[in-house]
Amino acid sequence: MTDTVKIHVKDLKKYFGKLEVLKSINIDIHEGEVVVVIGPSGSGKSTFLRCLNKLEHSNGGTIIVDGNDINDKNININKVREDIGMVFQHFNLFPNMNVIKNIMLAPVKTKKMTESQAHEAGMRLLKRVGLESKAEAYPQQLSGGQKQRVAIARALAMNPSIMLFDEPTSALDPEMVGEVLTVMKELAKAGMTMVVVTHEMGFAREVADRIVFMDGGYIIEEGTPDQILKNPKQERTISFLNKVL
């Protein structure tokens, strides 16, 4: 972790109609930092993550990613997103393309790489997630764990400096959770800036630099895994942890 702030969030607000999902979120995430976001279902964890790459448009506050104010009209959001990989709970692989095409699509279409460069980079990434042999397979032919590893490789193909994970293991059979977490741990070790929404407390304890507990539209409490998991201060954090641990 360095002192450079990669993501600066100030007084972030997000409503869906009358529903105030995020009331005021404030956080600075540093380069190379792994932040794990926990909180009850419906507390706005996904919404927070999706605001960071503008999949959701915020209703107030400031989000600065790598020095770019993503709500600034003059910022090309597509360029900003190239630097932010996202991994979804339900993988969202493109079923009409095989694995390697899934990975190559974005680098080729954004003209970041030529077809052959993208293929080479794609194969390297597949090797990294242990799925070299599945390059020509279609998503439907893969297990959940394999799908999620491909999804991670696809996000990495754009060479992002930030990775967002929204419950990447929640849709997996228990025996497949490990293989995905292993890939994520290696990413963290390699210095990737990561924001991870997860219920995997083992992962949080082992990998997180900071755990953030969200509830009711606010960050209620944050700190190192030791502080949050062993000595939570807030009532709501304690009762949440009692339920999940």
Partner: peptide
């Protein structure tokens, strides 16, 4: 989720639609 995944990779709306 298909459009969201595509947009999150930095592809434009048009490219996401088309591809």
């Amino acid at each position: 989720g298909q459009m969201e995944a595509s947009r999150s990779l930095g592809l434009t709306y048009g490219t996401s639609m088309k591809c």
